[in-house]
Protein backbone atom coordinates (compact mmCIF):
# COMPACT_ATOMS: atom_id res chain seq x y z
CA UNK A 1 0.00 0.00 0.00
CA UNK A 2 2.66 2.46 1.11
CA UNK A 3 4.88 1.43 -1.80
CA UNK A 4 2.02 2.03 -4.25
CA UNK A 5 1.25 5.44 -2.76
CA UNK A 6 4.87 6.46 -3.26
CA UNK A 7 5.47 4.83 -6.67
CA UNK A 8 2.44 6.40 -8.34
CA UNK A 9 3.57 10.03 -7.93
CA UNK A 10 7.19 8.95 -8.47
CA UNK A 11 6.24 7.58 -11.89
CA UNK A 12 4.49 10.85 -12.76
CA UNK A 13 7.57 12.84 -11.77
CA UNK A 14 9.87 10.54 -13.73
CA UNK A 15 7.66 10.71 -16.82
CA UNK A 16 6.79 14.42 -16.80
CA UNK A 17 9.78 16.06 -15.08
CA UNK A 18 12.82 13.79 -15.44
CA UNK A 19 12.17 12.39 -18.93
CA UNK A 20 11.48 15.78 -20.60
CA UNK A 21 14.64 17.25 -19.10
CA UNK A 22 16.71 14.34 -20.40
CA UNK A 23 15.07 14.68 -23.81
CA UNK A 24 16.15 18.30 -23.90
CA UNK A 25 19.78 17.20 -23.55
CA UNK A 26 19.21 14.46 -26.13
CA UNK A 27 17.63 16.66 -28.80
CA UNK A 28 20.28 19.37 -28.33
CA UNK A 29 22.75 16.92 -29.90
CA UNK A 30 20.46 16.22 -32.85
CA UNK A 31 20.23 18.30 -35.97
CA UNK A 32 17.46 20.24 -37.64
CA UNK A 33 15.77 18.37 -40.49
CA UNK A 34 12.86 18.65 -42.85
CA UNK A 35 9.75 16.84 -41.64
CA UNK A 36 7.46 16.43 -38.66
CA UNK A 37 8.96 16.77 -36.08
CA UNK A 38 11.67 18.90 -37.73
CA UNK A 39 14.55 17.18 -36.03
CA UNK A 40 16.88 14.25 -36.61
CA UNK A 41 17.67 12.67 -33.23
CA UNK A 42 21.32 11.87 -32.49
CA UNK A 43 20.63 8.14 -32.70
CA UNK A 44 18.71 6.62 -35.62
CA UNK A 45 17.74 3.09 -36.65
CA UNK A 46 19.00 2.12 -40.04
CA UNK A 47 18.55 -1.45 -41.27
CA UNK A 48 17.83 -2.65 -37.75
CA UNK A 49 20.94 -1.22 -36.16
CA UNK A 50 21.46 2.04 -34.28
CA UNK A 51 23.52 4.63 -36.11
CA UNK A 52 25.04 7.63 -34.38
CA UNK A 53 24.24 10.80 -36.30
CA UNK A 54 24.48 13.26 -33.45
CA UNK A 55 26.23 16.55 -33.85
CA UNK A 56 27.56 19.43 -31.85
CA UNK A 57 26.61 21.98 -34.48
CA UNK A 58 24.00 23.67 -32.26
CA UNK A 59 26.54 24.27 -29.51
CA UNK A 60 29.15 25.34 -32.07
CA UNK A 61 26.68 27.88 -33.45
CA UNK A 62 25.99 29.21 -29.94
CA UNK A 63 29.71 29.81 -29.47
CA UNK A 64 30.31 31.25 -32.93
CA UNK A 65 27.40 33.64 -33.36
CA UNK A 66 27.76 36.60 -30.96
CA UNK A 67 23.95 37.04 -31.16
CA UNK A 68 23.54 34.23 -28.60
CA UNK A 69 26.25 35.37 -26.18
CA UNK A 70 24.67 38.82 -26.40
CA UNK A 71 21.24 37.38 -25.58
CA UNK A 72 22.66 35.57 -22.56
CA UNK A 73 24.38 38.71 -21.28
CA UNK A 74 21.32 40.89 -21.87
CA UNK A 75 19.05 38.35 -20.12
CA UNK A 76 21.31 38.32 -17.08
CA UNK A 77 21.46 42.12 -17.05
CA UNK A 78 17.67 42.48 -17.31
CA UNK A 79 17.14 39.84 -14.61
CA UNK A 80 19.72 41.46 -12.31
CA UNK A 81 18.29 44.92 -13.03
CA UNK A 82 14.77 43.76 -12.24
CA UNK A 83 15.93 42.06 -9.04
CA UNK A 84 17.97 45.12 -8.04
CA UNK A 85 15.04 47.50 -8.59
CA UNK A 86 12.73 45.11 -6.74
CA UNK A 87 15.11 45.18 -3.74
CA UNK A 88 15.51 48.95 -3.84
CA UNK A 89 11.75 49.47 -3.74
CA UNK A 90 10.88 46.26 -1.89
CA UNK A 91 13.20 46.63 1.10
CA UNK A 92 11.67 49.86 2.44
CA UNK A 93 8.20 48.49 1.68
CA UNK A 94 8.94 45.31 3.64
CA UNK A 95 10.45 47.37 6.45
CA UNK A 96 7.29 49.50 6.67
CA UNK A 97 5.15 46.36 6.74
CA UNK A 98 7.32 44.88 9.52
CA UNK A 99 7.17 48.12 11.52
CA UNK A 100 3.39 48.47 11.20
CA UNK A 101 1.15 47.55 14.14
CA UNK A 102 0.87 43.75 14.36
CA UNK A 103 -2.77 43.64 13.29
CA UNK A 104 -1.97 45.69 10.17
CA UNK A 105 0.95 43.55 9.05
CA UNK A 106 -1.00 40.71 7.43
CA UNK A 107 -3.50 42.95 5.58
CA UNK A 108 -0.65 45.15 4.29
CA UNK A 109 1.32 42.11 3.14
CA UNK A 110 -1.82 40.74 1.44
CA UNK A 111 -2.21 44.09 -0.33
CA UNK A 112 1.36 43.79 -1.66
CA UNK A 113 0.94 40.16 -2.73
CA UNK A 114 -2.58 40.22 -4.21
CA UNK A 115 -1.56 41.81 -7.55
CA UNK A 116 0.37 38.60 -8.34
CA UNK A 117 -3.01 36.92 -8.67
CA UNK A 118 -4.71 39.53 -10.81
CA UNK A 119 -3.75 37.77 -14.01
CA UNK A 120 -0.65 38.49 -16.08
CA UNK A 121 -2.58 39.27 -19.27
CA UNK A 122 -4.87 41.89 -17.69
CA UNK A 123 -1.85 43.49 -15.99
CA UNK A 124 0.14 43.68 -19.23
CA UNK A 125 -2.94 45.03 -21.01
CA UNK A 126 -3.10 47.74 -18.38
CA UNK A 127 0.54 48.71 -18.95
CA UNK A 128 -0.04 48.88 -22.70
CA UNK A 129 -3.03 51.17 -22.08
CA UNK A 130 -0.94 53.35 -19.77
CA UNK A 131 2.23 53.58 -21.85
CA UNK A 132 1.05 53.79 -25.47
CA UNK A 133 1.80 57.00 -27.36
CA UNK A 134 -1.91 57.90 -27.06
CA UNK A 135 -2.00 56.22 -23.65
CA UNK A 136 -3.11 57.41 -20.25
CA UNK A 137 0.27 58.64 -18.99
CA UNK A 138 0.98 60.70 -22.12
CA UNK A 139 -2.60 62.07 -21.95
CA UNK A 140 -2.11 63.25 -18.36
CA UNK A 141 1.33 64.76 -19.07
CA UNK A 142 0.08 66.54 -22.22
CA UNK A 143 -2.96 67.98 -20.45
CA UNK A 144 -0.79 69.15 -17.56
CA UNK A 145 1.43 70.91 -20.11
CA UNK A 146 4.52 69.07 -18.88
CA UNK A 147 5.37 67.76 -22.33
CA UNK A 148 4.72 69.05 -25.84
CA UNK A 149 4.70 65.77 -27.74
CA UNK A 150 3.91 62.28 -26.45
CA UNK A 151 6.84 60.33 -25.03
CA UNK A 152 7.71 56.97 -26.54
CA UNK A 153 7.29 54.70 -23.55
CA UNK A 154 5.88 51.46 -24.87
CA UNK A 155 8.34 49.00 -26.48
CA UNK A 156 11.24 50.53 -24.59
CA UNK A 157 13.35 49.63 -21.58
CA UNK A 158 11.08 51.83 -19.46
CA UNK A 159 8.06 49.66 -20.31
CA UNK A 160 10.11 46.47 -19.99
CA UNK A 161 11.31 47.26 -16.48
CA UNK A 162 7.95 48.69 -15.39
CA UNK A 163 6.25 45.45 -16.44
CA UNK A 164 8.94 43.22 -14.94
CA UNK A 165 8.96 45.15 -11.66
CA UNK A 166 5.17 45.14 -11.50
CA UNK A 167 5.14 41.34 -11.80
CA UNK A 168 8.11 40.55 -9.58
CA UNK A 169 8.08 43.19 -6.81
CA UNK A 170 5.69 41.19 -4.57
CA UNK A 171 8.09 38.21 -4.67
CA UNK A 172 10.87 40.41 -3.30
CA UNK A 173 8.75 41.95 -0.55
CA UNK A 174 7.49 38.63 0.84
CA UNK A 175 10.76 37.10 2.19
CA UNK A 176 12.02 40.51 3.33
CA UNK A 177 8.83 41.33 5.24
CA UNK A 178 8.83 37.94 6.97
CA UNK A 179 12.50 38.23 7.97
CA UNK A 180 12.18 41.84 9.14
CA UNK A 181 9.01 41.17 11.14
CA UNK A 182 10.71 38.25 12.91
CA UNK A 183 14.00 39.99 13.65
CA UNK A 184 15.31 40.40 17.18
CA UNK A 185 14.65 44.05 18.01
CA UNK A 186 16.67 43.73 21.23
CA UNK A 187 19.91 44.01 19.24
CA UNK A 188 18.81 47.35 17.79
CA UNK A 189 17.82 48.60 21.26
CA UNK A 190 21.26 47.57 22.55
CA UNK A 191 23.03 49.42 19.75
CA UNK A 192 20.92 52.52 20.43
CA UNK A 193 21.65 52.29 24.18
CA UNK A 194 25.33 52.24 23.35
CA UNK A 195 24.89 55.54 21.57
CA UNK A 196 24.45 54.63 17.91
CA UNK A 197 22.31 57.03 15.88
CA UNK A 198 19.23 55.51 14.15
CA UNK A 199 20.96 55.50 10.74
CA UNK A 200 23.99 53.77 12.23
CA UNK A 201 21.77 51.19 13.97
CA UNK A 202 20.12 50.37 10.66
CA UNK A 203 23.36 50.13 8.70
CA UNK A 204 25.35 48.13 11.22
CA UNK A 205 22.64 45.96 12.82
CA UNK A 206 19.33 45.73 10.94
CA UNK A 207 20.66 45.60 7.38
CA UNK A 208 23.49 43.07 7.95
CA UNK A 209 21.14 40.75 9.86
CA UNK A 210 18.63 40.86 6.99
CA UNK A 211 21.20 39.98 4.30
CA UNK A 212 20.09 36.32 3.94
CA UNK A 213 16.55 37.56 3.22
CA UNK A 214 17.96 40.14 0.80
CA UNK A 215 19.78 37.35 -1.05
CA UNK A 216 16.64 35.19 -1.07
CA UNK A 217 14.54 38.08 -2.40
CA UNK A 218 17.10 38.84 -5.12
CA UNK A 219 17.24 35.21 -6.27
CA UNK A 220 13.45 34.77 -6.09
CA UNK A 221 13.17 37.53 -8.70
CA UNK A 222 16.36 36.84 -10.66
CA UNK A 223 15.69 33.14 -11.39
CA UNK A 224 12.30 33.47 -13.14
CA UNK A 225 13.18 36.86 -14.66
CA UNK A 226 16.19 35.41 -16.50
CA UNK A 227 13.95 33.22 -18.68
CA UNK A 228 11.00 35.60 -18.94
CA UNK A 229 9.28 35.61 -22.31
CA UNK A 230 5.82 37.17 -22.14
CA UNK A 231 6.64 40.55 -20.54
CA UNK A 232 9.55 41.50 -22.87
CA UNK A 233 7.53 40.26 -25.84
CA UNK A 234 4.57 42.56 -25.10
CA UNK A 235 6.27 45.58 -23.53
CA UNK A 236 9.98 45.54 -24.34
CA UNK A 237 11.92 46.87 -27.34
CA UNK A 238 11.04 44.96 -30.51
CA UNK A 239 13.60 42.29 -31.34
CA UNK A 240 15.30 42.72 -27.96
CA UNK A 241 17.33 39.52 -27.71
CA UNK A 242 16.52 37.91 -24.38
CA UNK A 243 17.05 34.18 -23.91
CA UNK A 244 13.35 33.47 -23.37
CA UNK A 245 12.49 35.25 -26.61
CA UNK A 246 15.40 33.73 -28.54
CA UNK A 247 14.42 30.20 -27.46
CA UNK A 248 10.84 30.95 -28.48
CA UNK A 249 11.90 32.35 -31.87
CA UNK A 250 14.30 29.48 -32.66
CA UNK A 251 11.54 27.04 -31.81
CA UNK A 252 8.42 28.61 -33.33
CA UNK A 253 9.84 30.75 -36.14
CA UNK A 254 13.12 29.11 -37.25
CA UNK A 255 11.85 25.65 -36.28
CA UNK A 256 15.39 24.78 -35.18
CA UNK A 257 14.54 22.49 -32.27
CA UNK A 258 18.12 21.36 -31.49
CA UNK A 259 19.26 24.97 -31.25
CA UNK A 260 16.29 25.87 -29.01
CA UNK A 261 17.11 22.86 -26.83
CA UNK A 262 20.80 23.83 -26.65
CA UNK A 263 19.81 27.38 -25.64
CA UNK A 264 17.50 25.97 -22.96
CA UNK A 265 20.44 23.94 -21.63
CA UNK A 266 22.58 27.09 -21.53
CA UNK A 267 19.85 28.89 -19.57
CA UNK A 268 19.63 25.96 -17.14
CA UNK A 269 23.40 25.83 -16.72
CA UNK A 270 23.55 29.54 -15.97
CA UNK A 271 20.66 29.30 -13.49
CA UNK A 272 21.98 26.18 -11.76
CA UNK A 273 24.17 28.17 -9.37
CA UNK A 274 21.49 30.74 -8.37
CA UNK A 275 18.92 27.95 -7.95
CA UNK A 276 21.31 25.98 -5.74
CA UNK A 277 22.07 29.11 -3.70
CA UNK A 278 18.36 29.83 -3.30
CA UNK A 279 17.61 26.29 -2.11
CA UNK A 280 20.45 26.51 0.43
CA UNK A 281 19.08 29.79 1.77
CA UNK A 282 15.65 28.20 2.06
CA UNK A 283 17.02 25.40 4.19
CA UNK A 284 19.25 27.51 6.41
Amino acid sequence: MRAALISAPFLWLLALVAAPSLLLGWIAFGSAAEGVPPVAPPLAWQAGAPVWQGSLESFALLLEDPHYAGALLRSLLVAAGTAGLALLLGYPMAYAVAEARPRWRLPLLALVLAPVWTGLMPRLGAWIGLLRDEGWINGVLLRAGLIEAPLTLLFSDVALFAGMLHSYLPYAVLPLAIALARRDRGLEAAAADLGAAPGRVFLSVTLPLSLPAVAAAFLLVFIPAAGEFVIPELLGPPGDPLLGRVIWAEFFQSRDWPLAAALALVLLAVLALPIRAYQRLGRG
Binding site: P20, S21, L24, I27, I223, A226, F229, G244, I247, A261
Partner: peptide
Protein backbone atom coordinates in the same frame (compact mmCIF):
# COMPACT_ATOMS: atom_id res chain seq x y z
CA UNK B 1 16.70 12.44 -2.99
CA UNK B 2 15.73 12.17 -6.68
CA UNK B 3 12.03 12.28 -5.71
CA UNK B 4 12.58 15.52 -3.77
CA UNK B 5 14.63 17.03 -6.58
CA UNK B 6 11.99 16.24 -9.21
CA UNK B 7 9.16 17.49 -6.99
CA UNK B 8 10.88 20.86 -6.58
CA UNK B 9 12.14 21.25 -10.14
CA UNK B 10 8.96 22.70 -11.73
CA UNK B 11 9.09 25.54 -9.17
CA UNK B 12 12.48 26.79 -10.34
CA UNK B 13 12.71 25.81 -14.01
CA UNK B 14 12.12 28.71 -16.43
CA UNK B 15 8.77 28.25 -18.13
CA UNK B 16 10.27 28.29 -21.64
CA UNK B 17 12.50 25.38 -20.61
CA UNK B 18 9.60 23.41 -19.08
CA UNK B 19 7.42 24.13 -22.10
CA UNK B 20 10.05 23.10 -24.63
CA UNK B 21 11.04 19.93 -22.79
CA UNK B 22 7.42 18.80 -22.29
CA UNK B 23 6.72 19.42 -25.96
CA UNK B 24 9.67 17.21 -26.93
CA UNK B 25 8.25 14.48 -24.68
CA UNK B 26 4.77 14.77 -26.18
CA UNK B 27 6.01 14.84 -29.78
CA UNK B 28 8.24 11.79 -29.30
Amino acid sequence: PLFGLLAGAPLVLPEVVTGLSLLLLFVL
